[in-house]
């Protein structure tokens, strides 16, 4: 009987230490990688999903879907301009949803293919933005901006847009804005007015 007890204790100890070890590792994981806080993200995106739907209903514009994506994109850009990490996270989650909702049915097959490619890529960047510190958000915003610029080339936009460019950030980075005045989302308050308008769209 004593022997059984000893064996049981050893096994239980092993089990507990294994569990503890994997928990510790898992925790480390979350700090280390770019963040997989899906639970939080779900809450956020679900909340925004509803408001997106409402806006969609109000928007009589034919390109309603793309316009909602642009609206989120500009809000995200403005959050980065004012160095607001928390707000950028929230809008990132919302943007992820808006991207998913883009209706590509009215485009040609070639355009559909490209739009799907753009959406898939942009969604991933939006997701990372929704879970990352601001420096990392800006890295993803750079690639996201390229996706959105390519999207607008297909979907068009109801407003006049300005493609702006900062030669300093990561060997040169572009973004879209509704205003002609440059407000730099890559540097925020550090270099607010750094950049130039390189193209006018529409």
């Amino acid at each position: 009987m004593k022997k059984v007890k000893l064996v049981t204790t050893i096994i239980v100890m092993a089990f507990i230490s294994l569990t503890a070890m994997s928990c510790k590792d898992a925790k480390k994981e979350h700090n280390n990688d770019e963040g997989h806080n899906t639970e939080m993200n779900h809450d956020n995106s679900d909340g925004h999903h509803d408001s997106d739907k409402k806006e969609m209903a109000m928007n009589s514009n034919q390109d309603g879907n793309a316009e909602i994506i642009l609206k989120d994109y500009f809000n995200l850009k403005d959050a980065l301009v004012v160095d607001d990490e928390a707000k950028a996270k929230k809008i990132g989650a919302s943007l992820e949803k808006s991207l998913e909702n883009l209706d590509v049915s009215k485009y040609t097959d070639a355009q559909k293919l490209e739009l799907k490619d753009i959406i898939l890529d942009a969604k991933e960047h939006a997701e990372h933005i929704s879970k990352s510190p601001i420096a990392h958000q800006r890295e993803h915003f750079k690639v996201l901006s390229k996706d959105i610029i390519d999207m607008v080339a297909i979907t068009g936009a109801s407003n006049k847009l300005y493609e702006q460019y900062c030669p300093m950030y990561e060997k040169g980075s572009a973004w879209l804005s509704m205003n002609k005045e440059v407000r730099n989302p890559y540097y925020g308050s550090k270099m607010l007015k750094c950049g130039k308008v390189q193209r006018e769209i529409n």
Binding site: E29, D33, L120, V143
Partner: peptide, 26 residues
Amino acid sequence: LTIRRKTSKLRSIIKQIEGNKMPLDS
């Protein structure tokens, strides 16, 4: 993967290695 996706992934790979984020410490 499409060229767009490859470009994105390569960018991430480079960033992860540069920032010592990958391979994970654990």
